[in-house]
């Protein structure tokens, strides 16, 4: 991470740009991350959105954005960003608008679009070296339709389409690695519960040009099954147990920006969410718990 003027929490903005009054659920971890991000990106932005929870941020005639917004469709927000970016470049190049009218093009999608339907459009936007920032709020399921499993759902989680005794049979896709494999300018994971880490990464991304991609783990009270006030605690547990590694990819290298000194047991994170309750009641699924812990341990084995 570049040297940042954001040294401590008190350096973070104290007034907030994103308008209140949105229809997002109370305690939404995604909105928390977005408003932290928006403080740093500011109003000279155009958010290009794909179908998901946050499509409802702008419902006629209400929008929380002080800058601009374009809703596209579930699969093609990065292509929408391409059209906007190219059009702004053309307008500036042909001197129809001044540089001061330029905007940062930001794609905003959930994990359903980012991990699945929109992955081809994202891959292509990166290969074309599109100058844009992609923000994925990852609530680990198709949240807007009632939390069915998606490509981002973790192993064993119950969702409304994985209701059996073992939960979701698949594994969470490593989108960070998929994005990084394209060698874009920047990739990072963030979480709203770690605002300083998040802010430093957005600052870093702002300094760069080209494709810059951010995955924000978005604890979801409704979809994950916990009370809204726990969003930050759940988020912190995701980091402290090592489930959600905070890291960034830059110049061909992956750097972990927050390595938990002594990781808490994964169980501490699982047991506070209803979607994992079947691992504890009516009886403990020891085998599954061990296996989930082992996966996290294996991940961290070679890191710092």
């Amino acid at each position: 991470m570049n040297e940042s003027h954001l040294r401590r929490m008190k350096d973070l903005p104290s007034t907030h740009l994103l308008g209140a009054g949105t229809p997002m659920c109370a305690g939404c971890g995604g909105l928390q991350a977005l408003h932290e991000i928006y403080d740093l990106l500011g109003a000279k932005t155009v958010f290009v959105n794909a179908a998901g929870c946050m499509t409802l941020l702008s419902v006629y005639p209400f929008t929380p954005f002080r800058g601009s917004w374009l809703y596209t469709a579930m699969a093609s927000a990065p292509a929408g960003a391409q059209g906007v970016r190219d059009a702004l470049d053309i307008l500036i190049q042909k001197r129809r608008i001044g540089r001061e009218e330029d905007l940062e093009t930001v794609v905003l999608t959930g994990d359903g679009a980012a991990y699945g339907m929109g992955l081809s459009a994202t891959s292509a936007a990166i290969e074309r070296n599109l100058d844009f920032l992609y923000i994925c709020y990852d609530n680990e399921g198709y949240g807007n339709t009632g939390q069915q499993y998606s490509g981002a759902t973790p192993h064993a989680a119950k969702t409304s389409t994985s209701t059996g005794p073992s939960g979701y049979a698949g594994d969470k896709k490593d989108l960070f690695a998929i994005w990084a494999a394209h060698r874009p300018a920047y990739v990072a994971t963030v979480i709203g519960a770690e605002p300083l880490d998040l802010a430093r990464k957005i600052e870093a991304a702002k300094q760069l040009r080209g494709p810059r991609l951010i995955i924000a783990l978005a604890p979801c009270p409704v979809g994950w099954g916990y009370s809204p006030e726990e969003t930050v605690n759940v988020g912190k547990l995701a980091v402290k147990t090592g489930i959600w590694p905070l890291k960034e990819y830059i110049d061909g290298h992956v750097i972990h920006t927050k390595v938990p000194r002594s990781r808490l047991p994964v169980e501490d994170y699982l047991k506070v969410q209803n979607r994992f309750a079947h691992l504890f009641t009516p009886q403990r699924d020891e085998a599954m718990l061990v296996s989930l812990q082992t996966k996290v341990d294996d991940y961290w084995k070679n890191i710092a």
């Binding site: 596209t72 927000a77 990065p78 292509a79 059209g83 190219d86 470049d89 307008l91 459009a121 292509a124």
Partner: peptide, 28 residues
């Protein structure tokens, strides 16, 4: 011709980009 051409990865993306550029104010 003083224009910019970009090959997208699908027609779905192509028409998205076309609409987005038109919505930004250029002739597409």
């Amino acid at each position: 011709m003083d224009a910019r051409m970009v090959t997208l990865e699908s027609e779905h993306s192509m028409i998205t980009a076309a609409g987005a550029a038109a919505a930004t104010g250029v002739r597409v």
